[in-house]
Design a protein around this nucleic acid. Structure first.
Length: 283
DNA sequence: CGCCAGGCTTCTA
DNA sequence: TAGAAGCATGGC
């Protein structure tokens, strides 16, 4: 609740601590609302509060300008360009994928969508909580998780470390009201804190090996594992299959994605997910 | 109310 | 070894 919005009373003039960043092939709204991240609030059209990397940002987009309040320019360049994948050439990636007409159509529904690069542990924990759940409730559970077990960073909370959660028993998560997922979170925290999960392996090992490490966690199956690899370990070849993606794949790609798309299967997946969900053609 | 949620584990034939 | 049932909770 108090984990959400900064003061936004002065919308008229640009606040002095507001920086502006040139962006192309990027839509703040499409990216932030694409189900990858959960610590955000929509304040207005093209206007969001986002807690990421121990920082609370206020973001507003107007055309190719992204206005950012809450971090300095050098800090944005050092940490948030990577977070938003702004140094990836999405123009290039999209024209590669768009060689396939079906992907071209999907892309046209959300041409500003980008895959985020989020911290590994936060991504793992968040997507465990996401299973068989809806985004509104996931956001509430994560807000309570941070308020209960994160550090106060001045009106908002850090994402709790794996070490902190590893020391708890599942019952201690009762206040989160995350249901049967409590024991999954604790198992993941313990394995992560123990370094049973190797970030290096997840980032660099063959996909099958990386998946195996994640699915060894109680409560992590193939879908959550691929979300973690894609959103939390920069594995753009990971391909999370949820009900929507399964549906659209059965209809449009019964033989699977074209070979040339596979290095960017995860990005293709995001366009397809968005298209399947919002076009209304795949219910 | 009842159905469903960016699934996974466990039980069953 | 595939397919269905059960799982906590709450949004709509």
């Amino acid at each position: 609740m108090n984990d959400s919005a900064p003061d936004i009373s002065n919308l008229g003039a640009l606040p002095v601590d507001c920086i502006s960043v040139e962006v192309g092939d990027f839509s703040l709204a499409q990216t932030i609302e694409s189900g990858q991240c959960f610590r955000f609030e929509k304040l207005d059209e093209n206007d969001y509060s986002l807690i990421a990397l121990d920082t609370r940002l206020r973001l507003r987009q107007s055309g190719d300008k992204l206005f950012v309040q809450g971090c300095a320019e050098d800090d944005f360049a050092r940490r948030f360009r990577g977070y938003f994948s702004l140094d990836d050439d999405y123009g290039e990636i999209k024209s590669l994928l768009a060689q396939d007409e079906r992907l071209k159509t999907a892309i046209s529904f959300a041409p500003g969508l980008r895959v985020l690069r989020q911290p590994l542990w936060e991504t793992l924990c968040s997507f465990i909580l996401s299973q068989n759940n809806n985004i509104k409730r996931i956001k509430g559970i994560i807000a309570r998780l941070c308020r209960c077990f994160g550090d106060d960073l001045g009106g908002f909370y850090s994402f709790p470390s794996a070490e902190r959660l590893a020391a708890l028993e599942p019952e201690a998560l009762g206040e989160l009201r995350c249901g049967f997922r409590d024991k999954y979170v604790v198992d993941a925290a313990r394995r992560f804190a123990n370094e049973d999960i190797s970030e290096h392996t997840l980032r660099a090992a063959p996909l099958g090996e990386a998946r195996a490490q994640l699915t060894a966690i109680f409560g992590v199956g193939p879908k959550v594992a691929d979300c973690v690899l894609l959103f939390g370990a920069a594995r753009l070849d990971a391909f999370p299959r949820d009900v929507w993606v399964n549906r659209i794949m059965a209809r449009l790609f019964p033989e699977g994605l074209p070979e040339f798309a596979k290095p960017y299967a995860g990005i293709a997946q995001q366009y397809l997910f968005h298209y399947a969900r919002l076009s209304g053609e795949f219910q």
